[in-house]
Design a binder for these strands. Structure first.
Lengths: 181, 181
DNA sequence: GTCTATATTAGGATAGAC
DNA sequence: GTCTATCCTAATATAGAC
């Protein structure tokens, strides 16, 4: 609380005035940060665009957005693993997202679209949940695992930046190739 | 320290006797846990097996090993994001791995193998680092992100178990499909 | 090596003035 | 709403007996 107060340029007591205690402050931060991570994903997935366009859009969005706030994935994962109550809070966030007009049951919508494309022979059959987790894994993990990647590949920050730049340019092709019949 | 001592069935002071302070204890735990995550990966990658066999082995190993200790990916990522000094420690771990007889520069070995297979027209060209990160992302992220996946897909622990079981059965096909020329 | 007892500090939280 | 001053607890760490 002391550090946060200093960073914010206010007094420690003021934080307690606004947020009651440390736990509630943590919750407020999590809600704001985690909410942003899923809103656009749900929006894109429940649009009526083609599958290929959706894939490209999701990758594009994640790379441009997360490059501005690269610590977000690591933070959200850490919070969820260390504070079990965050799961409930994320569930509420997702529920309000799903009940919003622009993303009503985006998993169901995606599922229908995948089944239809598979029947038409345009893609290999794949379950919607696997599709989603594959896509998000490939986009989000490299941000959350930056220190791990740098250590294993023996590169520094500049090498990592090059790696991510190449990744942004090639990931869509890789993912779409996996979907080919 | 109190909780750890109780869990271990010893006294708090004994932990300080063995590990000097909390920081060193944390480091010792990290070294042991993180080491296990990469040793087998490096071993498989630097073997002389076919690419397809390597992919299947890595996926198989990660799913069977991590299912026994599903908290490991979340723990390692959290440590790396919250304690910058862990990066150095992981670097040392990787260096000793690389200088060991069974995994000498496994990234380089993989790179040659990928280039060769691409020239022969057996796979699409892909950089070794992207190949590695893609593979590890798809395997490791779903363990680290379990709470996130459960919230977004609106499933409970049983639903997650089903999801992971299906994943273990289908991920190799997905990844290998992406490599097809 | 293992314990009890204790020193020391840091951090969350509140009271009360302004 | 914002601050100063203070309380209180928890947690790291050490001293010293056995």
């Amino acid at each position: 609380m002391q550090e946060i107060a200093e960073e914010a340029g206010v007094n420690k007591a003021l934080l307690h005035y606004y947020f009651r205690n440390k736990s509630r402050l943590g919750e407020a931060v999590f809600r704001r940060v985690a909410g942003g991570m899923f809103a656009r994903l749900a929006g894109i997935m429940s649009s009526d665009a083609e599958l290929e366009a959706k894939v490209r859009q999701v990758i594009e969005i994640y790379f441009t957005q997360l490059s501005k706030v690269p610590y977000v994935p690591g933070y959200v994962l850490s919070e969820l693993n260390q504070h079990p109550e965050r799961s409930h809070q994320l569930l509420e966030i997702v529920r309000t997202l799903r009940s919003s007009p622009d993303a009503p049951d985006f998993v169901g919508a995606l599922s229908k679209q995948l089944a239809q494309a598979a029947r038409a022979g345009r893609i290999r059959p794949i379950a919607a949940d696997q599709f989603l987790v594959n896509l998000v894994s490939l986009c989000v993990f490299p941000f959350a695992a930056r220190p791990m990647i740098c250590a294993v590949l023996q590169i520094d920050q500049r090498g990592y930046d090059r790696f991510m730049k190449q990744r942004a340019a090639t990931l869509a092709q890789f993912f779409l190739a996996a979907l080919r019949p």
